[in-house]
Design a protein around this nucleic acid. Structure first.
Lengths: 138, 138
DNA sequence: TCATAATAGTTGCATATCTAACCACTGGAG
DNA sequence: CTCCAGTGGTTAGATATGCAACTATTATGA
């Protein structure tokens, strides 16, 4: 019915991809948003919370809640910046470091599988276009 | 950081598109999911609730909640099927019919604008690919 | 015919997301 | 130095979404 609508088809695809990554991250007891947030923290320990929000392209408020969840699971810690007392530095805990490689591998495996399913070129082209369109909308 | 990830880039794009359609539907006091649900009901009055869920590619439970909202706004009515008493037929109210054309036009205008922004071919190609990828994931 | 399986819709619970409003702190402009 | 604007983070309130479990109804099959 909304065959030609970018909104409809993109959000529908996003929901389906969410299911795929939900399965991939289930062994770690992490939802996709939690998994990606943790991966970002693991990739760049010591990030400011606002930088994390930028990196993940989510609102600052959403970052607060996401980190609350990871903190409750003992996967990250917030440290008040010694300089600017408003800022929080986010660092992964030992428990997070332990699953780092497996988590990244799980995500890479899904990417690999989908890339094969659609054809590597089509897959990469689609992702590039999604990025390009998002950039133009900013 | 997740430059090559279809999950990350698709969900991020979906959030941005949500903002665009939020603005487009704001004059009607409808959110994007509400607007699309109403458009589906307007396009095919008398649809069963489960058919509506399929059409919109959302869970039945989500359809229930969405229709609750539209019903509260006086835009749709549920009628128990005379045959199978489990079923509900969804029909738009007169108030909904009044905004039908303007609502469709508002969405078409956004589509038009974005299509121009990215180039009509790129735009259509992207939407087709999103649909094709979603179909393969089913 | 009657027990059981399947289906339509709802409800409960959990998560993610946003905007707006707020607090605490920082940094300039007078 | 002081006030005021800006910034980092949090909180409040709203919406959307899913899965799982439930109710009511219908269909099947022994």
């Amino acid at each position: 019915m909304f065959d030609r609508c970018i909104y409809f088809n993109t959000t529908a695809l996003a929901r389906q991809l969410d299911r795929v990554w939900t399965a991939a991250f289930a062994p770690f007891d992490l939802t996709p948003p939690q998994g990606f947030m943790l991966r970002a923290v693991l990739a760049r320990p010591g990030l400011l919370q606002s930088e994390l929000a930028d990196e993940l392209k989510i609102a600052r408020a959403t970052t607060t809640r996401g980190l609350d969840g990871l903190e409750a699971k003992g996967l990250i810690v917030r440290t008040k910046s010694s300089g600017d007392k408003r800022e929080s530095l986010i660092t992964p805990t030992a428990a997070a470091l332990e699953i780092k490689d497996a988590l990244n591998a799980a995500s890479a495996a899904v990417t690999q599988r989908l890339s094969g399913l659609f054809g590597a070129e089509v897959f990469a082209g689609f992702v590039d276009q999604a990025k390009a369109i998002a950039a133009k909308l900013e």
